[in-house]
Structures are given as structure tokens and as C-alpha cells.
């Protein structure tokens, strides 16, 4: 059973988003997503300073037999990327919610995160997919 963290919000496309104390948001993929993808072999991250509109493609995560786009959960500017993933993509599998984070954004509107899926709603979505 994949872990669904309580302290983050989710997208239906399986990204998680966490609002930090400094007002920035951190984005990664859920445990359910890393499990479905299988062994991650590469992560393509955006350049720092790039702005994204909510819902646009921001990064790519590759396993041996699939490649998935990671969408910007909110509009904002990239302020940091987890460059450790370049040499150790398996971190996404080992620690999807912590060491395996992808991107940190400064959101244009921090309240926009409120519109994303709650942990309960995301859990329901995952249950649906597995049944």
C-alpha cells in the first residue's frame, strides 16, 4: 500500500506539493507514482529562474519503459532544483516525499495551493486506480 502523506497536497497526475514556511512550494511525485513507474533512471529538471504556468510541463521523469511529464502544480518561478537526482535518480524511488523532491517554486499566488487535492481525495483517487 503506497504512502499518502498528510502534510502535502496532490495533483490528479500524482505530483505532491508542500507549502514551506518561507512561502515557497516544493514539488515531487507521490509514492504511488514512483511505484507505478518502477525504477526511475533519469530526471530532467528545469533551469532555475524559469517561470511556469499552472498545468504546464515542468520536468520529466523516466523509467526504463516509460517517461512521464511533471506538471507545475501552481504558477510560479523555479528557485531551486534537486540536482542530486541527476546522479542518483533512484532517490525518487527510495524517498519520494523527502530526498526525492524535484523542484522548489515561488508561487505567484500561495493560496492557489488550496485548490489542489487533499490527502483524502488523493487516497480515494489511488484506490480507484488500483481497483
Amino acid at each position: 500500500m503506497a504512502e499518502v502523506r498528510d502534510d502535502v497536497r496532490y495533483l490528479a497526475t500524482h505530483e505532491w506539493v508542500k507549502l514551506e514556511a518561507d512561502g515557497s512550494v516544493v514539488v515531487g511525485i507521490s509514492d504511488h507514482a514512483q511505484d507505478a513507474l518502477g525504477d526511475v533512471v533519469f530526471v530532467e529538471l528545469p533551469e532555475i529562474g524559469t517561470s511556469f504556468v499552472q498545468g504546464s510541463e515542468m520536468a520529466v521523469v523516466e523509467s526504463v519503459k516509460a517517461a512521464s511529464d511533471i506538471y507545475a502544480p501552481v504558477s510560479g518561478v523555479v528557485v531551486a532544483c534537486n540536482s542530486a537526482l541527476e546522479d542518483a535518480p533512484e532517490t525518487v524511488n527510495d524517498s519520494p516525499y523527502d530526498a526525492g523532491w524535484f523542484v522548489r517554486l515561488t508561487p505567484d499566488d500561495p493560496s492557489s495551493i488550496e485548490s489542489l487535492l487533499s490527502p483524502d481525495a488523493y487516497q480515494a483517487l489511488c484506490d480507484d486506480e488500483t481497483h
Partner: peptide, 12 residues
Amino acid sequence: LQAREQHIRRGK
């Protein structure tokens, strides 16, 4: 590196 190829990545 098959994830670059059309049979997986299709339009991308």
C-alpha cells in the same frame, strides 16, 4: 534510453 523514442514517448 528508449524513453526518448517514439514507441514510448509518442508525440514527445
